[in-house]
């Protein structure tokens, strides 16, 4: 329960920090950390406008999206703070909850009948499809390593190893950071600040959403960031630590993660559109290396 609340809390200021870092580097006046929150509150005060060509799918999508992300949040443990829900194989459920939300977003974008939105949906579907093997190979390797198939047990048993576990952790953090970037359509894959519909991925999909719906989508994005931050922080936080250390570490890692994203976005240019698939599949390749490392550690492959 605590982990759920922690993620909710951290999600509020996450995007704010990114914006702050980017503004600082661009030597602009920094907005408040809570600026995204104010924006969403403003959006909530407005009503939504629906195009006459859209159907019920378009209307329920933001709710389903938000619900799926919230539901996924329930599975994340933090250190020794257990997740709200946990069962064997829950990471598959977790992945497909997020995927379901995404699926709704895609069909909603198609529902509007706009050429641009269909194009954005197309790209989003491709990238999600490509990133999926990376996530599953990574978490699968963890499961193999710890002989557990739920997030909670998996992380509980992770920290007992040799120097090879450090490689796995570093590589896993690397992969998760970039998965988070891709899932949230951030910099190397997509530029949230772009103004040309032809080069957008995520932004173009939500062009028709307004008011309350748009606010929900924004909150879901924050939550997704916080979820991945939670997943990453678990690689660092030891279950043997005292609870307030764990919480401080979690918040610290969330802030650090946000700052890293801000830095990446400030300094890096977006990939060329046709380079994206190869870049994303590279994550899967590294995940395969992690998998092979796990096989060596667990002596599934015996080498001499």
């Amino acid at each position: 329960m605590i982990s759920f609340l922690l993620i909710l809390v951290s999600s509020i200021f996450f995007v704010g920090i990114i914006i702050k870092v980017k503004a600082k580097i661009a030597a602009r006046k920094m907005p408040s950390v809570f600026q995204p929150l104010f924006d969403v509150i403003r959006l909530f005060k407005k009503g939504a406008i629906y195009s006459s060509t859209t159907s019920v799918i378009f209307k329920i999508t933001p709710l389903v999206y938000m619900a799926s992300v919230l539901m996924a949040t329930l599975f994340i443990p933090i250190g020794s703070q257990k997740g709200f829900l946990s069962f064997e194989g829950d990471f598959v459920f977790f992945a497909y909850l997020l995927a379901m939300g995404k699926f709704m977003m895609i069909i909603a974008a198609m529902d509007t009948g706009s050429g641009f939105e269909a194009m954005g949906a197309n790209r989003e579907a491709l990238y999600s499809m490509l990133v999926e093997p990376a996530f599953f190979i990574l978490i699968g390797s963890m499961a193999l390593f710890t002989h557990n198939t739920s997030f909670q047990d998996l992380y509980m048993n992770l920290h007992a190893g040799t120097e090879l576990t450090y490689i796995i952790s570093i590589a896993a953090i690397y992969i998760l950071i970039y998965i988070a970037m891709i899932e949230n359509s951030r910099m190397p894959v997509d530029d949230p600040k772009t103004h040309l519909e032809l080069t957008m991925v995520h932004e173009v999909m939500v062009l028709d959403n307004s008011g309350f719906d748009l606010g929900l989508i924004h909150i879901a994005t924050w939550l997704k960031f916080a979820i991945y931050g939670g997943l990453i922080s678990n690689f660092v936080i030891q279950t043997t630590w005292i609870w307030y250390y764990q919480i401080t570490a979690f918040l610290g890692i969330q802030i650090l993660f946000a700052i890293i994203i801000g830095l990446v976005e400030a300094f890096r240019a977006r990939n060329k559109m046709e380079k994206n698939p190869q870049w994303i599949i590279m994550l899967s390749a590294i995940a395969v290396v992690i998998f092979l490392t796990t096989l060596i550690i667990t002596q599934k492959i015996i080498l001499n």
């Binding site: 120097e163 490689i167 590294i286 290396v289 092979l292």
Partner: peptide, 10 residues
């Protein structure tokens, strides 16, 4: 040694 072997693969 494994560390370097993994790095080589990368």
């Amino acid at each position: 040694t494994y560390l370097f072997i993994i790095l080589y693969a990368v």
